[in-house]
Design a protein around this nucleic acid. Structure first.
Lengths: 185, 185
DNA sequence: GAAGATTGATGAATCAATCTTT
DNA sequence: AAAGATTGATTCATCAATCTTC
């Protein structure tokens, strides 16, 4: 009886393990090191694994639109903006991706007709990305699909999800994800 | 006054934002959608961002050994094993990576002299990876470096880290990360 | 000179197909 | 036929360098 993930990824998990590989790593660690510092390692490993799981789940959910989750995020940024247009640089800041990546993300959206490029009216250095009508339709449909699977965060409760987000926020603040002005107060 | 991350990634964050980009996305979402399903989206986005942050932090910490975190995990698997040798397939299962990735990870370790390949004594299909003496030294030193920065999980407390790990474990179980036999009981 | 965006190149990760061994 | 590993191809992300415009 193959597990859900196993059926989808035959190359990665041909024969499912009988133990938690992440916890097992922590156990062997403890045996060799003594242990007070086991937990951060286990947490970091868990984040990496979850990123892998989410990437698979979310990309599969919207693959029929030829969207990756990264492209979806860019599309939603345009969709939720007031005018439907944003400078590429501003989008890169919001999504925290390299300018080069922003270029290729918009390339992808443009290729599928979900967005288009236009010159900035006043600053000719800047390129404006604009969502198309088709892009709005797809954004709404893709969001339905992702909502239907709770953005991959099953089987967490609302409280667990909120607590998780808050914990991760602290690390993001520490990393300087944005200017946390309240931190001074 | 540039933030820590900003100084390191000039291309990504030339001018730090004044707000939390993740929370801002959730806010705009709420304004357009109504809201009950905002939290899973925010949580997923947070995981993606944290993966990015951890990747940067951890890779930087051990870059002087020519190790990436993925290579470090493979090296530690050998380091913590009883005999110092493991079949590539078994390593791939533990680390949950594609066989192809396992090949290139060992290629990297072998290139630096941290590990070597050897034929399996009985099954000639199998390749055995073995950690070298130099590999053991580097494994210990790299672990020190990573411990010194708490595996990137600053500024979380022990309780927060443990709770985070437990929450993520539930999602991993759901994804079939391993055969959770206790789940039946 | 600096900001905004792009092109070309490098490294990592998965997939498809191949090869050997069981 | 299936398991184990590898090669080659594709995609994605970042970096370095370039180009235009402010």
């Amino acid at each position: 009886v193959p597990t859900a993930a196993c059926g989808k990824l035959p190359g990665i998990v041909p024969q499912p393990l009988r133990f938690d590989p992440v916890e097992e790593a922590g156990r062997q660690w403890r045996a060799n090191w003594g242990s007070p510092t086991v937990t951060p390692m286990t947490a970091a490993t868990s984040i990496f694994r979850l990123h892998q799981i989410l990437t698979t789940r979310l990309n599969e959910a919207i693959a029929s639109f030829d969207l990756t989750y990264a492209r979806y995020e860019a599309l939603m940024l345009l969709f939720l903006s007031r005018t439907g247009s944003l400078p590429l640089g501003k989008m890169g800041q919001r999504l925290q991706v390299h300018p080069t990546s922003m270029t290729s993300l918009i390339d992808g959206l443009e290729r599928d007709g979900y967005a288009s490029r236009a010159p900035h009216p006043t600053d000719r250095r800047t390129t404006l990305a604009t969502i198309t009508e088709r892009g709005r339709e797809v954004a709404a449909q893709a969001t339905e699909r992702l909502n239907a699977i709770d953005f991959g965060m099953v089987p967490l409760s609302g409280d667990e999800t909120a607590a998780l987000t808050e914990t991760l926020r602290k690390v993001r603040v520490d990393a300087g994800d944005w200017l946390d002005e309240d931190a001074d107060a």
